[in-house]
């Protein structure tokens, strides 16, 4: 087994005195496509922010690419939860995607042709090349979500961290985004955080259930109704978790 890209060891995080993550151990290896499921407020976004170095753990340890979080910014692509920013901001999709190149540039270095080429490639991968010059406010929810994925890809990361990429798009676009992720997992290690229990099991290689504490489900297992109800404290869909592309079954 190679060294894990992310290793969390008995990680605890407190925000404003409340325990958000409690004794969480987790490792992500190269080639993984890990989905972290859990209810809102269960600490999913906090977990990503710990990995990004935005939130400091109160105890336990985290390493990302063998270093402290925040020290490997050029190797991580982050797709934040949408709607955090101003849709009326005067900026084109291309300019947003170019920001993905920031971690590879030094202060005072300007964006050059190489950066624009990588940004355009990322837009092509996400199917947005024709909308490159479109103002960000004129994009639909799904297009905006894909633009943010393109921004993460433009930095040529090895690891992609996605926060609720399907939370604010319609069901049709959800499929498009999952198809895109299926394609991206061939070249990237992916950690995806979602409260969407519906179709996720078909696409990922591992599932973790997070509600303050973490429950790991390895390939081949079915995440049963009992486990999910324990996680969410109310009845939810069963997540069928198979590696093979079997027809989707609604519980």
């Amino acid at each position: 087994m190679t060294e894990p890209l992310i290793a969390c060891n008995r990680l605890c995080v407190e925000l404003g005195g409340a325990k958000v993550l409690d004794g969480l151990s987790l490792s992500v290896h190269e080639g993984d496509f890990l989905a972290v499921l859990g209810p809102n407020g269960g600490g999913k976004t906090t977990l990503l922010k710990v990995m990004l170095g935005l939130v400091k753990p109160s105890s336990g340890s985290v390493t990302v690419f063998g270093k402290e979080p925040g020290q490997a910014s050029g190797r991580i692509g982050y797709v934040p939860q949408r709607l955090d920013f101003d849709r009326t901001f005067p900026i084109s999709a291309m300019e947003v995607v170019l920001m993905g190149r920031l971690s590879r540039k030094k202060l005072f270095q300007r964006y050059v042709r190489e950066d624009r080429r990588k940004a355009l490639e990322a837009l092509e991968t996400t199917g947005l090349a024709s909308l490159a010059q479109r103002r960000i406010g004129a994009l639909s929810g799904g297009e905006l979500q894909r633009a943010l994925i393109a921004r993460a890809l433009a930095g040529e990361p090895e690891l992609l961290l996605l926060d609720e990429p399907t939370a604010s798009v319609d069901p049709d676009m959800k499929t498009t985004i999952y198809d895109l992720l299926d394609q991206l997992r061939k070249r990237h290690t992916i950690v995806l955080v979602t409260h969407d229990t519906g179709t996720i099991g078909r696409h990922v290689s591992r599932i973790a259930c997070l509600n303050c504490t973490l429950d790991m489900h390895e390939p081949g297992s079915t995440l049963g109704r009992a486990a999910l109800e324990k996680l969410y404290h109310f009845p939810v869909d069963v997540v069928e978790h198979r590696e093979t592309q079997t027809p989707h079954r609604h519980a």
Binding site: L52, F89, L107, Y111
Partner: peptide, 22 residues
């Protein structure tokens, strides 16, 4: 002129700018 890409980044998405090492 010197800080245009950095200023644009912190204006549009400060968190992303921080993650990018700014």
């Amino acid at each position: 002129w010197l800080f245009d890409k950095e200023f644009l980044a912190i204006s549009f998405d400060e968190e992303y700018a921080r993650i990018s090492g700014l």
